[in-house]
Design a protein around this nucleic acid. Structure first.
Lengths: 217, 217
DNA sequence: GATGGTTGGATAGTGACACTCACCGAGGGG
DNA sequence: CCCCTCGGTGAGTGTCACTATCCAACCATC
């Protein structure tokens, strides 16, 4: 496959593919001669993964580069590789420990994790980006005067636990570690928006069911 | 409260507050004289809502303006207002109907909604942004060779339905319509990232539980 | 009544980001 | 031999959310 073909098959302009090559997101093609290179299915697949991360997941190019690096890093064992790739995905700012909302939310979240028996999450809470995201989001919520207690999250967390089980069941249907890591990353980048969409559809469905079409207030 | 105080109380620079005033996100303060204006708690609250949408939700300024417009639109009845505000939130491109993946995913999603009995979602599928997001995300997934069937989403959808019930229960604890709309928007902007974070924490928890700390592949 | 701080308003500039364009010399088919 | 296409490179573009600077008016304080 020549660059132009790769472009046609993927729907990505040659200029953009060149940009990805330059940025090191896409490995260079097999050089045939000084002005010709050959690309294969693997390139096409990688290109689509890159597009998914950037366009759907809004992940910055530099982060995509890191994530791909972890996916390809054969020196890491499977679960470490998965963790590395997943943790590279979100770009979470450090919570400001001076902020009183941050501190109180952090206590609540820790209590929540304890109550849920998520001992691993509790152990890794200082480094897990997910934990930091959770703290930051809840702090914003509290700053606005809502979400007095993290207790409200317990039923949500239980449901999320069931979802995580569904996720892992699906992941385990894929044999190779490399593919599992890719599936996990894709799950985070593509499936999560889909689940959010499902969530909102469910809300729309349920709210019309409760309130009806006409409105009284 | 003067502009400088508003800035101190919110942690947002005066330059940025001026920018929001100029952009029409924040209503002007009560003019005391030609060079003095008074802001109140409502401004502070609104400012924090704006920051939450822009910083946490990464919502473009123009979209924030629309959403706020809907929240404030007293001419709309409650549920319409809620729908308008929620639907203004995501910026979803039109799915390309020429694309075969889009078309096949659309059929699958319609079948899924039918199977779930989400008749309202089915009726509104041509205009609901959530529906479009779902189709786009699943199409990307399929383009990469995964997610052969939307059947896989059924258990996820059932869980999302339970979540939507939790959401609405919480929303109903707030009496006024205006506040309910605000809570719903905040839920979409702030709670959803929190839920995503919970989801990933649950995944980490469950995967270490299944795979253990050491890795064998 | 000078001073220093603050106001709303306007204009232009910044930095990050994801491309996108124009050009280049090197092949290679006709 | 000619001209088209190839891949590579450097510089430019558009968007976006600010941000910096200036301005004249105004007010409290010294």
């Amino acid at each position: 496959m020549r660059l132009a073909e790769l472009s046609r098959n993927s729907g990505v302009s040659t200029a953009t593919i060149k940009f990805y090559l330059r940025e090191g997101l896409l490995p260079p093609g097999r050089q045939i001669n000084a002005s010709n290179a050959e690309y294969d299915e693997e390139h096409l697949r990688r290109l689509r993964l890159i597009r998914a991360m950037i366009q759907v997941g809004r992940i910055p190019v530099a982060t995509v580069r890191q994530v791909l690096g972890h996916i390809d890093d054969d020196s890491l064992s499977g679960s470490i590789r998965l963790g590395a790739a997943m943790w590279a995905l979100p770009q979470v700012p450090e919570p400001d420990e001076e902020d009183k909302h941050i501190r109180s939310v952090r206590e609540d979240v820790d209590a929540l994790l304890e109550q849920l028996g998520w001992t691993n999450a509790l152990a890794l809470r200082t480094i897990s980006p997910s934990y930091r995201s959770l703290v930051l989001a809840l702090a914003s919520f509290r700053r606005l005067g809502y979400g007095e207690s993290a207790e409200l999250l317990v039923p949500y967390a239980k449901l999320m636990q069931q979802m995580a089980n569904l996720d892992l069941d699906f992941m385990e249907t894929h044999p190779s570690k490399a593919e599992q890591v890719e599936v996990a990353v894709l799950g985070a980048v593509l499936l999560e928006p889909a689940l959010t969409a499902l969530h909102r559809l469910a809300q729309e469905e349920e709210s019309t069911r409760r309130l009806g079409w006409t409105d009284e207030s």
